[in-house]
Nucleic acid binder design. Structure first.
Lengths: 112, 112
DNA sequence: CTGTTCCCATCGTCTATCGATGGATGGTAA
DNA sequence: TTACCATCCATCGATAGACGATGGGAACAG
């Protein structure tokens, strides 16, 4: 029967925030970002590459990240993404907004 | 002069949860649901009617709410939405899933 | 009778996530 | 060497969900 599905991997609208926060740790390539998100969230957050790369393109366009080609630890060619100053500001703003909204949602969930 | 303002009013993917939780208080009509969300969240959550009604249709289709025509307190005709048993189960499940994901996001936001 | 508030609802747009897919490269094992 | 697998890049098409604009109708206050 069961067409059961894997419940949910991500909250829409939070991916940019997650990527920016991850890049705050240091420059990283796409694959590494996905791996780190999965690791830190203990397998709860699983971002596919087809979500990740469009998101990175978005962030590049807005000037929140910068990209540079390099070599990964395994000597493979890899594109490293790095947070810009504007990206750091954006991160702070998005984080605050996220906290604000989540707090509001909890108020609803906990109301009498 | 830009009183510009609200960048985001809602986290996509959380609307169903918010509606179900609101209906747990008791049967309510659409307008009332929106008003209550705004009130309880202290103006942070503002759901427009063009988001609300499609969402209610969705919930009806899935059998999580039931609808019935009646009269509002002001004697106007109003459609009252009510949580079904399946809806209550769904609410519990979505709430848990929401908590799970938000906790994971915080882990990312707070990582070293 | 006119305007305002309350209450219903749809259409079209836009943004974003995701499954499927494709390709290149380097390490490893047979 | 050859095969294979893991890593790493990226796009396309489908789908879903939120929102602005818009429309209507019924009660009540002025």
């Amino acid at each position: 029967m069961g067409t059961d599905k894997p419940p949910a991997e991500l909250l829409p609208g939070t991916l940019d925030l997650l990527i920016l926060r991850t890049l705050l740790v240091g420059p990283m390539h796409g694959y590494g970002i996905a791996a780190r998100l999965k690791l830190v969230s203990e397998d709860v957050l699983q971002v596919g590459e087809s979500s990740l790369y469009p998101a990175l393109q978005r962030l590049l366009l807005k000037g929140w990240v910068r990209a540079e080609w390099g070599a990964s630890e395994n000597k493979r060619r890899a594109r490293y993404y790095e947070l810009t100053a504007a990206g750091k500001r954006q991160l702070a703003a998005e984080r605050e907004e996220f906290a604000r909204i989540v707090a509001a949602i909890w108020k609803v969930l906990d109301m009498a």
